[in-house]
Design a binder for these strands. Structure first.
Lengths: 127, 127
DNA sequence: ATAATTAATGCAACTGAGTTGCAAATATAG
DNA sequence: CTATATTTGCAACTCAGTTGCATTAATTAT
């Protein structure tokens, strides 16, 4: 698919990812933009932005979908594989720029790996 | 909570994990046992077996819940942290007994980490 | 053993994130 | 600026998982 037209919805959504660099859940976006964009459209635009390598998505431990900006991805594929961190205290989720190496597994061909780390984030750790 | 009574449902469910050692999705269990156990009960018993450290659970990439036998866990907590592998071809999921080390992250306290690896399993790799 | 107590079960109805079909609206190409 | 193709909104749906409550089955006490 991919983004074809620079529509209002696309602009509004992209804008949400401009400021802060942490991940945002689809649900949160739907809530935030409920007066401007329809829920279905939010899902559809997010989908396309992902196809286009602008955003990447992942599920948290309760199965809800999160989106965050991509750094080195393209339409060709999401190559930027990194772990995600979810704070068990405040719920904030962000991308970690650390490398986690998955050792090769006998007889299995690894395609992708999703790593979700849970713990207490910097701000919640102090309190 | 924890398991208190050795009921029929508990026995039937535990039996499903006796034979093969790979993970089974809640949905699959509900289908398999539909004539013997009610869906609600399946969810509730799985929940308790997890609390008791008999089974552990995780979500796959489409957000559905899987359960597998624990090896070194107890009521005190699930200590046996290992990656899970889902075959993109046949859908089979199993526990990997490999170690994946998450490096310490500055200012963050890691509690748990979920690693889901996707690729082609041994049998699907041959074909 | 049997009654009393407490936990587990089944059912039906619900929840909530995400999806689908389709007609109306809006971008882009010609 | 019209024609064509893509997006959008809406309402209705899907489907895994949950909840409340009355019934049933285990366990404990008698």
């Amino acid at each position: 698919m991919g983004i074809i037209r620079k529509t209002q919805s696309v602009e509004v959504l992209l804008n949400e990812f401009q400021e802060k660099s942490n991940a945002i859940s689809a649900i949160e976006l739907i809530k935030r933009l409920s007066s401007q964009i329809n829920k279905t459209t939010v899902y559809r635009v997010l989908d396309k932005l992902e196809d286009d390598g602008v955003l990447h998505s992942f599920l948290d431990n309760s199965g809800i979908k999160w989106y965050a900006k991509c750094n080195d991805c393209s339409k060709a594929g999401h190559t930027d594989m990194h772990p995600h961190f979810q704070c068990v205290s405040c719920g904030k989720v962000d991308c970690l720029s650390i490398e986690v190496t998955i050792p090769p597994i006998p007889n299995r061909e690894i395609e992708v790996s999703q790593i979700l780390i849970q713990g207490r984030c910097e701000s919640c750790n102090v309190k």
